[in-house]
Simulated assay, not measured.
Amino acid sequence: MTRIASAETRSIPADGEPSPVPHAGHGAERAADVPVVQLDGVVRHFGGTAALDGISLSVRKGEVVGIIGRSGAGKSTLIRCLNGLERPDRGTIAIEGRDITGLSEAELQPLRRRIGMIFQHFNLLSAKTVAENVMLPLKIEGMPRAERRERAAELLDLVGLSAKADAYPSALSGGQKQRVGIARALAARPALLLSDEATSALDPETTASILALLKDINQRLGLTILLVTHEMEVVRGVADRVAVIDAGKIVEDGPVWSVFSAPKAATTRSLLGAIRPDLPPAIVAELAARGERVLGVDLVGPEAATLLAALSIELKAPVRLVHGGIDYIQGQSVGRFFITLPAGAALPQAIAFLTRHGAHVETTGHVPDHV
């Protein structure tokens, strides 16, 4: 049986010494209330450019939070500030309640053992075996060899690579290399796992398997995970929350299902364009030429599957679905539909009905002047 300790089993504060898990009571409740990550007003300039411009973000224990944005938005600078490789010009960064912004390099070293990192290009040592790569952080920490080997065996079992312990990275596929990277990142039992574009170099099938592994690790170990990515599919597949960063600012933050169903920021809508249904221009032109009235309808919840049928009953006329459908995100039904109304149907009546049922409605195509 695999024996993997959770993040609570062996808590290591910044001085590097193990400490017991708090006993039940007020002390334990206070410890649980402390965010694993807390950023307040973080600013980082490079020359005259603000890579981070007043970033504030809180991540609770056990959350999986996606940080998403275009290239150059500030994602890489943010992750380097979190592990102490960059120092902010202003603001504070706290890891498990400890402000790291004023720590010396020596003081940062034990704290970094509380932060695991997985990378886009794996960063494995080619001259070391899979097991030796996983054991490396523990060797640096000074753990005895027998304990290192036992821990590596546990982690390779966790990521499904026990049979590859004595193989070298050159013999592994991309997905297997990333699994080794994940095992290595977990070696020192971190409180926080940072994923820096960890699936960008992988094909879609392998990406799905890595995301499933990260979600399993999150659920089994209660590990807090921060995913830095430009791929909305990655966020949808594993994250609980998503924060959208643009020009060094967080422009949107919320549960994944909420942000995906009703994005507020223009940046979010643009990033979602590849996976969120939109009315193709050819259909827009065809409907406009026929003078048809088109409604874009967004709705979250069980009614997403039945609302169009209910609207037909309300209008006493058929409603035609021309594009869109229902997605399922975090257990929520998220509907996005484009519909046309039959000739003579009352547009205000349709919009009022849909709005009463919690839908967000936009009009496109031909809309009469008096509406």
Rank of each mutant, 00 (worst) to 15 (best):
V294S: 02
P255H: 03
P263R: 04
S195L: 09
V242C: 05
E252C: 02
D278Q: 14
A288D: 15
L213H: 00
L194A: 01
T206E: 01
I283H: 11
E252P: 10
A265I: 11
A243R: 03
I217H: 03
R179P: 08
S270R: 15
K177Q: 11
I245H: 07
D203S: 08
A282L: 07
A188L: 12
G222D: 07
R184E: 03
T199C: 14
L193I: 02
P204N: 10
K177F: 04
L287Q: 14
L213I: 03
L192R: 02
G273W: 10
T206V: 07
R293A: 15
M232H: 13
R189T: 13
K264Y: 15
I217M: 02
A265E: 04
E286Y: 08
V251M: 03
A208W: 08
I275A: 02
A183Q: 01
L271A: 02
E292H: 15
L214D: 10
D278E: 14
L186C: 00
S270P: 15
G222F: 05
R269K: 11
A285P: 09
D196H: 02
L279K: 02
P255D: 01
A239I: 12
A239T: 12
S200H: 03
I275Y: 06
E252K: 02
V294T: 06
D240C: 05
D196L: 05
G237I: 12
V238T: 13
A274E: 14
A243L: 02
D240K: 01
Q219T: 11
S270Q: 14
L227N: 09
A239S: 13
P280V: 06
R179C: 01
G181H: 04
G254R: 00
S261M: 06
R220N: 09
E292C: 13
